[in-house]
Write a protein that binds this DNA or RNA. Structure first.
Lengths: 191, 191
DNA sequence: GCAACAACCTAACAAGCGTTAGTTAGGATT
DNA sequence: AATCCTAACTAACGCTTGTTAGGTTGTTGC
């Protein structure tokens, strides 16, 4: 019995519409129409459009961050942790596609303070990626190299997926993560 | 004596504002204000806001496409061509940052027909990347692997840069391309 | 049975939007 | 001297935007 409140439904619709059309191209009346109520009625449940965007982006970053916090602290080799991070990242992408899209694409339209809050979370996430890489280099799991650059490499792979990955295709999220991981480890060089 | 017409100036400002705030968050009056004219005066030079966006996105995709067409047809090994493609891609990113940002970020706000035109160009670009990879695998320049997946790998690296790369930092575009290329070739596996 | 409340409605607000029409001033062309 | 062109202006158009105020339901708790 999962009880979805009206508020939850509003967030759900907003996630979908924001992800499809973008924040500024979505109107409050459109969100309302999907729920078969009038535009003004939304304000019985939420405080405004900005809050709607902020909540969605925040939920997205919390989701990614929670996964990363779990993984980074695990007592497994860096190699296994990196693979697990990639798996979890793509799993979120696949399970919460609209939210992830809004998180990556629409955070620019937050006001400055809220943007800063999101940026801090993003930085934290990136620091975990770099930490895994650093520890992996030290432990001999990874070849040595510029930690920042390798981090950007991994993050590019993960973050760009929201632009093209559509779950339900031939490739499920775990397989994609594994294949990306393998290619990342082995490289293009023939051996 | 490079003569910039008023029209050119309008595109230049629009590129910058669209890239900073997004298409829908930029008003015609804001574009005009930057040129110290009135909103309505823009229409002596351009036909409307959509045309403005389309022209900018189109110029971006033309720029990337031109580079890729040059590179893919060269009579050099796939390995060299891939590196050159990455260099040129990042060079455009660095030289035409606002245009590249609009190209990657705002094309969604084009109407359907214009979107299709852009999508066709993007597909063409991606086909060149995959072609280089395919030819490289055949020639033994690259380890064999899923052409589509390797292509996505390369494109993720290149396309994500618009989200973070700021020219003028410690890393110039050519160095970045080379470092990305090296990492892509060698992989993270220690040897 | 009555009060309280939540969920929604209608109607309107002020502001801003892209765009157009009509006009004006100055310079170039005939 | 008459005409045209260019680039700008002012003023307004019709419409949409996010948001609010006040009223109307139906349900719940006492």
């Amino acid at each position: 019995m999962l009880e979805t409140t009206r508020k939850d439904q509003i967030y759900e619709v907003a996630e979908r519409l924001f992800s499809e059309r973008g924040y500024h191209a979505t109107t409050m009346r459109e969100i309302a129409r999907e729920l078969q109520i009038e535009g003004g009625s939304l304000y019985s449940h939420i405080s405004g459009k900005q809050e709607l965007l902020y909540e969605i982006v925040l939920r997205g970053s919390e989701q990614f961050l929670r996964a990363a916090r779990d993984v980074v602290a695990a007592a497994t080799p860096a190699r296994a942790r990196l693979r697990e991070l990639m798996r979890r990242h793509l799993a979120i992408m696949a399970q919460s596609t609209p939210r992830a899209i809004v998180h990556f694409h629409e955070w620019r339209h937050l006001d400055v303070e809220r943007q800063a809050a999101i940026r801090a979370r993003r930085d934290e996430y990136e620091s975990y990626v770099r930490r895994i890489i650093r520890e992996g280099v030290v432990a001999g799991d990874f070849a040595s190299g510029d930690e920042r650059l390798i981090g950007l490499h991994v993050l590019s792979l993960l973050n760009w997926t929201y632009q093209w990955y559509a779950p339900g295709g031939t490739l499920n999220a775990d397989d994609l993560a594994d294949q990306f991981f393998d290619l990342l480890m082995r490289g293009l060089e023939p051996r």
